[in-house]
Every structure is written in C-alpha cells, then in structure tokens.
Design a protein around this nucleic acid. Structure first.
Lengths: 246, 246
DNA sequence: TCGATTGTCTAGCGGTGCTAGCATCGAGTC
DNA sequence: GACTCGATGCTAGCACCGCTAGACAATCGA
C-alpha cells in the first residue's frame, strides 16, 4: 500500500503547489493574471491537471481564501494578545486553533455557531457607556485598536488574498451553518476582542458584523484609491473611538 | 452647419444609448454579461462603433458610474430633506445640481474641494456631545438615519450601478482635484448631512469618509451574502447610533 | 505477459476585449 | 447634376480566456 500512499502524498503536494502558485501569482500581478494557462505553466503541468484538483478557477480562489482566513485569524489573535495582556496573564483564553470543530451554539443565525458562547466576551469590564462613563479599562481600547490595525494591515499586505476572501467569488458559504471552519474561526477571532466592547444590550455578533463591515469598507476603498491614503490612520482611530463602547 | 449639428446630436444620442443599454444589461444580468459583442448587438451597431465613443469597456463602466453618482446624490438629498424639514422650511439650501463647477476650496486633500465650504455643515445645531449631552436635535438623528437607509437602499436597488461606482474600475479619479463633478457632488451630499454630527474637533470630511466606508462595507458584504441578510436594519441602526455624535 | 485502470497530454470549443483595413455613403465643389 | 474625398461603420481577425473531449502512455493486478 506504500505506493498508493506515496501517490496520495504527491497529489496533496501538487495541490498545495497549485494554491501557493496561484496565490503568489495573484499577489504579484493581480488575480486577472492568474489564468489557467499561466498557472499550469508555472506548476509545469498541463491545464487539465488543474481540473483534476479543482472544479475550476473559482475553487482555486476559494482555496486561497481559506488559507488566508487561517492566517488572518492568527494575525488578529497575535495582535490583540500583544496589545495589552489581561491582569491574569496568559492572553485571553484563545487556545483554539483554526481547526477545532466549533459545535452548535447560540443559533442566532449570524455566522452560525462561531466562537465563544454567547455573551462570553462581556465577562471583563466593558459596558461603560450605560452606567459609568469612561471607567478605565484602557486595555480594551488598546486591544480593539490593535485588532483594527492588524486587520487593515493584513488587507494592505495581502491584497490578493484579501480579495479572495472578501471580494471575489470563491464559492464559499458565509454566515451559514456550512461555512468553512477557517472562516468561522476568523470571525471568532474578531468576536473574542469585540465582544468586550459591544455595549449593553447589543448582541456581540451583531456588533462584530458592523465593526468588520466598517473595516472592510476602509480597507477596500483605501486600497483602490477611493479614500485619500494619507488619513488612513486617523480614520481608523475615529472608527474605533466611536464604534466601540469602552 | 445644420447638418453637422444634426450629426453631433445623433452621435450624442447614440452615446447615451450605449450607456443606457450597458446599464440595463448589467442590472439585468450582471456586468459579466456586458460584453462588447452583446452590447453592440443591442444597440444595432458593430463592435468598433463602441470604440469610437469610448476607449474601451472600462470607460463605459465609468460613464455608467457617473450617471449613478448623480442619481445617488439626488437620492441622498431627497431622503434627508424628507426626513425632517428644518425650522425655516425650504430644505437645506441644496440647490446645486450635479453640474455646478465646484471651484477650488479647502484643499485638505480629501476628495478635494467638494461640496459646501469647510464646516458649513455645522451651522445648525449639532456639537451636542462636547457640551450639552443629548440636547434634543432629534432632527439630526432622523436625517442621518434617512441618509444611511437611502444609501443602502440605492446600493440594493441598483447593484450594477453601485458596482460601477464603487467596486469596478471605471477609470475615474476619486478623492482628487480632478475627480469628476458628479462624484464630488455625491460626496458633498453626504457631507451636508454628516457635517452636523461629526462631533467636536473632528474634521467633517474625515468623519464622512469613515461613515461612507462603513456603509460601503455593509452594502457590499450584505449583498454578497457575507453578512446575514436578516439583521441588516439592526446593523444600520447600530452604526448610526454609535458613529454619529448627536 | 496481458488487459484494465489511472494519469496526463494535445487539440480544440465557444467565448472575451480590441483593432487593422476596407467599403460605402454623403457633403461640398465645380 | 456629376464628382471628389473624407468621415463613418463594417468584416474579419488577433491573442487571449475558461474549460473539456478524446488520444495516448504508464502503471497495476491477475
């Protein structure tokens, strides 16, 4: 059976090569330059080989998107962990890698069963607005700012991957039960930090969606030159200050 | 000279026909379906005729975008006017059509010389946060909510036009001195309402950019099914409540 | 060793945006 | 009214696209 195993391994290697090559080509020359012919040439196989791994170009984009989602989740967690460690050290309980199954929870229909249990993000500080003014908790602000910066930084440094995730059609399901795990986990990474600052009576997932959408708008419009590049940092600060309830 | 005039007129008519046909086709079947062959067939001319009017498909998209920008500006102004008429009737002094020259002003580099003179949007109420708590002025909240809804409604009802403006490359300059007048005017329409609620010490244009970006994120992610469609209205309300300084 | 299976390739389909070069038409001139 | 001649719109075709049918070679099990 060793022969079959070797073949499977080689096949998996080639699949990874396809995805990596597509990603690199897209990042260097844009997704328009990622044609099946060029991609086949780069991996030194003929075009039909691509179709033995993926249904078509769309699925290749989807594969790049999943890879990117895992990296984005890691980048967000790393940034928020570094930003300001909680009193009890250890970083905010975010052991879960991109891989954990993510069982059924909540069921509110938003991204469906993603991340920590409903409201868990509220455990620590937060809820200022309603009954206390700005009650210290500078840690939250620092984490949220770090989150926003990390997201925008990821988008700017990996434009093609970002497009594969959030602008192009990679055939992936979003905000549904059958959403692929890496996407759910990326949303969970958002939720872990933003749950703290959703504010009273605001569903953490709903708040996270709004925050994410705003960042997405900033990321895309800035990159395409539809917003003046100079003020990007000021826009980010304004967004964080206003949107989050510290 | 009447013959030349007639020819010019016919040529302008045909150009309008091209743009209208492209728009209709895009709105019905998506921009992918707008090919030069199909477009030529619909207007009952051959392909090269298109290229005597436009440099290429990109410019046709740009033409649709400009048309859409004028309509968007009108829709935003109509919605905010209807939302809550000011004490002195008449609607807020927004006579200017999409056509006025818009001379050099401000020079801050954001969309460059757009709309009313710097800070004009602050003339009426506003500035609550800093020195008065929620000092009535429910009119502002109503107008901002109406603005947001009108924008998202426009995006949902005219997806192809919206894409031409803000997602596809129509070869138009944004946020620059040479930005086409209709785009500047659409931004001005935003500014007229949002200037009121930028908050103290926040540049109205910067605030408008952030608000617009957030709406853009909501519009695109919702339409592509990346945000659960059911909660769209709640997201809009949350965004308005948090971002604006009433 | 032989047939079957698996894997990969060549060649080609119908489509894309765009353009070179030719034919025709009609306005201005005699 | 006949005749240039430039403007105008056409046919045909380029290089490329995503994708696939079918021929062919390599490998496997009997």
């Amino acid at each position: 059976m060793s022969v079959q195993e070797r073949k499977q391994r080689e096949r998996a290697d080639r699949e990874r090569l396809i995805v990596a090559t597509a990603r690199e080509l897209a990042e260097r020359q844009g997704w328009d330059a990622v044609t099946t012919r060029r991609l086949a040439e780069r991996i030194e196989y003929s075009q039909p080989v691509l179709y033995s791994h993926f249904r078509g170009k769309r699925e290749i984009i989807g594969a790049v998107a999943l890879e990117g989602a895992a990296e984005l989740a890691a980048a967000l967690r790393a940034a928020t962990r570094d930003a300001a460690e909680p009193r009890d050290g250890a970083g905010s309980r975010d052991a879960a890698g991109p891989q954990d199954g993510a069982g059924p929870q909540d069921g509110a229909g938003l991204w469906d069963g993603v991340g920590p249990q409903d409201g868990a993000g509220l455990r620590d500080g937060a809820g200022a607005q309603g009954w206390g003014g700005s009650r210290a908790e500078g840690g939250s602000r620092a984490r949220v700012t770090a989150l926003a910066r990390a997201y925008l930084d990821f988008a700017a440094r990996n434009p093609a991957v970002y497009d594969a995730m959030f602008r192009l059609d990679g055939g992936l399901a979003f905000a549904r039960e059958d959403t692929p795990a890496p996407l759910k986990d990326a949303f969970a990474a958002f939720l872990e930090t933003l749950g703290e600052v959703a504010g009273e009576g605001v569903h953490p997932a709903l708040f996270t969606e709004v925050f994410w959408a705003a960042l997405h708008g900033l990321a895309t419009l800035t990159r395409e030159g539809r917003l003046p590049p100079a003020d990007a940092e000021r826009r980010t600060e304004l967004l964080v200050d206003r949107l989050a309830a510290f």
